[in-house]
Computed example of a mutant assay.
Amino acid sequence: MAKQFPELDDAQQKFIQDQHIFFVGTAAPDGRVNISPKGMDSLRVLGPNRVVWMNLTGSGNETAGHLLETNRMTLMWCSFTTRPLILRTYGTAHTLHVGDAGWEELADLFPDHRSARQIYDLQIDLVQTSCGYAVPFMEFQSDRDTMQKWVDGKSDEDIRSYWVERNSQTIDGKPTGVPK
């Protein structure tokens, strides 16, 4: 049975910190809905109603494009170990890019990563838990090193060129706000 809360309690915050993967969901008023898995050391709970996460370079940039049109965001975690649990946070988010006010303060919360493309700041207005009975057991082995290897083979200029070429529009052709 799903339960709803106005904010994250201490146990829910601990649950989030223990997970190795989370999922982000966003949608513009029209076009495709996007759900993306995220990992690495890229998320921080800053309080009962605030979560920030650093978005690293990827093949797409749907979240940024959607947030330019509507600021709704859902984050989801599921337990693949111990007790079955799914936790979702719903709220409104805004995007920060390098050079924006607040970027440095939030970026300092994370390990330095040259492929950091955005930071998303989510203000939570609803937390929901559900059973997760059908979520399988899986064992964490390690984070992938693929992103780091990709970055190591690129200059900063190469990474920014990639953003302009591959990350400046959503799959629906809408702008993402990537600085050019």
Rank of each mutant, 00 (worst) to 15 (best):
F140L: 00
Q19W: 01
F15L: 09
T26H: 05
F23I: 11
V45P: 00
S59T: 08
L96D: 03
C131A: 11
Y133M: 14
Y162P: 14
M138D: 02
E157W: 02
R117V: 01
K149D: 07
S115G: 14
W150F: 15
D143K: 03
E157Y: 07
L126Y: 04
D143V: 00
F5Y: 15
V151D: 09
T92P: 04
G58E: 05
I16N: 08
G60Y: 07
H66E: 04
T70I: 05
F23W: 14
P136A: 01
R117G: 04
D172Y: 10
V164R: 14
G58I: 03
H66Y: 05
V33E: 03
M138G: 05
G153D: 13
G39W: 00
A107T: 00
T63R: 06
K149W: 05
G99D: 12
L68A: 08
V52W: 01
G91N: 08
I86V: 15
L87N: 05
M54A: 11
G132T: 01
K174S: 08
D156E: 13
W103D: 11
D9P: 00
R166A: 09
L109M: 06
D100N: 15
K154Y: 07
V45I: 06
S42I: 00
I171W: 14
T63F: 02
Q4F: 13
I119M: 07
H97W: 15
D121V: 13
M54V: 08
Q128I: 06
D152W: 04
V127T: 03
Q141V: 08
S155P: 07
N34D: 14
F80G: 06
Q169N: 08
T74G: 04
A11G: 09
K180N: 12
N49E: 09
H66T: 03
T129S: 09
F22Q: 05
R50H: 12
D10W: 00
R144E: 08
N49G: 06
G58D: 10
S79L: 02
H113C: 13
G153E: 14
S42W: 01
I16G: 10
